[in-house]
Write a protein that binds this DNA or RNA. Structure first.
Lengths: 218, 218, 218, 218
DNA sequence: TCATAAGCGAGACGGTACGTCCCGTCTTTAT
DNA sequence: ATAAAGACGGGACGTACCGTCTCGCTTATGA
């Protein structure tokens, strides 16, 4: 039952960690997730394979960390920027949250448009797709993905929607989690399956319908 | 354009084709998609590897055909059965369509509940997840997946929603494709990401919200 | 015990047989014996694989027949030509035999020089090497090779050497088979193992030594 | 000139190397060269295929090394043993050489009889035939075979024959390489082609004739 | 202060699966 | 019935990676 020796993370090389992150993201974007290999990442990062195996259990885990790191750095760069939008990852920074101007539809459109932009960002598309796909098939990884990346953003929606409920813009008997999926679900569906192009207009349309459906009965 | 040599499909062994389908589905269900190998499928089907490579370009393609075949056979078995629901695949048979009782919400609930049941069916879950995930990462395969498996069912929704538009239950300025995604999107989101359990109650809730949002303004 | 059906050789296509011979020889010369395949021979000959399997038990057997055919045709072409030499194959034709001018050494030099020329002929080298090598490893094939190709020529030596024994040029207690190998053995050794170039001068040297060794003691 | 990547031979596993040698020799003896496969060797040696491909370019090369190793170990075991004879390989040890008792014929008979015994040794026959045959067809391999295995022994003959020339037992104008082939050629010819059984008597006969032919004219 | 033990680069190792090439058999169609 | 064509079950090929395991080589304490 001895845990086979836990590596001492205080001695970990930050240089290598970053190089591995960068190599992983670059390779996934360049050659796709399937053709990205641990050996390839190690070679590209100028790192021994063991250094990867020492700190991560799988290729997907490497990519996940790399992605979290990327999101974290992006958030840092953004600084006090306003509409950071969804998908920015849940890293420590004081997540900006969804604005509350009193106009629910307008607020949601702002955020959903930002999400559309992110999903259409070529630098993020490949790793995001890879991680999502992996999580769909591998429940354990999927749970981690949801917990670390998705939940933090979704919580923002829950907050805003609760506020809307209190303001009387949304029926009290609707679960905010359901309301949120009414917004995010269609977006993700179109993006994941590539059925039709993902545009701001589409985001607006979804928001209009969803907000209408969530509003209290006349 | 000559792809090196096209095999003569009239001489194809039906016996082998079926054995490969069965083996592929069984293995994906038993050991998961990643651990399902072409060699494994060939061995299980009692077939030479080349017989697989001769007719399919990839593991995913094999599974796709196997799944289409399964859906086709299921549809055949169902025959004139009542509410076969979504997910039954688009094979030639006179697809049953979504009932039109005049009560849009009730009709959609019926179909969405059936879809929920299918997604929760342990025999279908693994291959469906595998194919969806593969399609998310591989655009070509994804297009095929959407075209062969998804579109045929979605067309049924489009039909029903157009009828609803004519009946005045849905605003005329809403694109039926968007309306449809308002229903399917949340369901798939929850199923794919496993954020929360997928239940009939959830389907009903989605339908209620969506139908409300799609209805003409008061 | 039924011999699985003996093909009717009277209906055999001569056209195909020749095409197969030619293809086999050409391929062996061009790409080497190892890389020559039955499929390749069939394709090159414009023939179905089964046509080869019907009439020959192995690749080596095809090549052997092809080689015999080649030797036969060469002998035919040569017609009444004098010094056909060794290696001409034992096909029906009235094999010319080794001349008997009374000068044993001179007669043998003539024949051995011809053999040297044949072994150095680039058109014959590859198939001869291939068949010899195959026979070295496969005893059954080797026996056939010796019986069909080698023995007929060696018999000529035996005849000439017996005549020499009667003429008193060779000791009576020497087995002509041994005497013959004293001449052929060194030649073949140098050719097979490529230790040194195979020349007329070498043939002469061998003959001189061998004839000296075979002569009656002074 | 960089051949894609040279493995670091200082880290090579000696255990694996030996296991591969043993497996190769065993398989060639048991099932024959043609049916010996790299996969089979790897499996029998308990080794990954890549470990073979990393260090050898072909099946024949593996067998060659295995054979050299075998000869080397045999020579070591023999130690200061007397007439080890030909075929013992040219490994570093102070090769015993051919005795020089003054009686050339007797000395050569001793050595040639030993060679006959070696060629008839069932443990050595299969690999020796396989290597020889492979070398006949593949010039590169053949050169290696001659250089590493054959030349060292032939050098012993050259030495002894030069001594015989100085002693006046052999004509001075005969190339020792030719003289040597007069002895070895017939032996190899009979063994390779299996024309007749290879016996001590035959070796003696060859020596008598050859020594007679090499002797100065009366 | 310096041995000593960790992380590290490198890469050999026993393996699994890949996708390809042929094997020898069998079946189909045409002559 | 032979022949051309080629699909089939099978086996081996040589390659690419997997995850584990030594190797020397730094680096960074803690005895």
């Amino acid at each position: 039952m001895a845990p086979t020796k836990a590596p001492d993370s205080s001695r970990r090389s930050d240089r290598s960690r970053r190089a591995i992150h960068d190599a992983a993201l670059a390779l996934v974007t360049e050659v796709g997730y399937r053709r990205t290999t641990i050996e390839g990442i190690a070679a590209r990062a100028g790192v021994g394979k063991q250094t990867i195996y020492r700190w991560w259990p799988s290729k997907a885990a490497v990519l996940m960390d790399a992605f979290l790191d990327l999101a974290g750095r992006a958030a840092e760069d953004a600084g006090a920027g306003s509409g950071s939008g969804a998908g920015s990852g849940g890293t420590g920074e004081p997540a900006p949250g969804i604005p509350d101007t009193g106009d629910l539809a307008a607020d949601l459109k702002l955020v959903l448009r930002a999400t559309v932009d992110e999903l259409n960002d070529p630098a993020l598309e490949a790793p995001t797709r890879a991680l999502t796909a992996e999580g769909i098939v591998d429940a354990k990884l999927g749970a981690e993905f949801v917990h670390k990346l998705l939940d933090p953003q979704l919580a923002l929606y829950v907050t805003r929607l609760r506020a809307a409920q209190e303001a009387g813009d949304v029926r009290a008997d609707v679960d905010p989690r359901t309301a949120l999926e009414l917004l995010i679900g269609p977006l993700m569906h179109r993006w994941l399956l590539r059925t039709l192009p993902l545009t701001h207009a589409y985001a607006d349309e979804i928001v209009d319908c969803a907000v209408g459906g969530l509003a209290p009965r006349a």
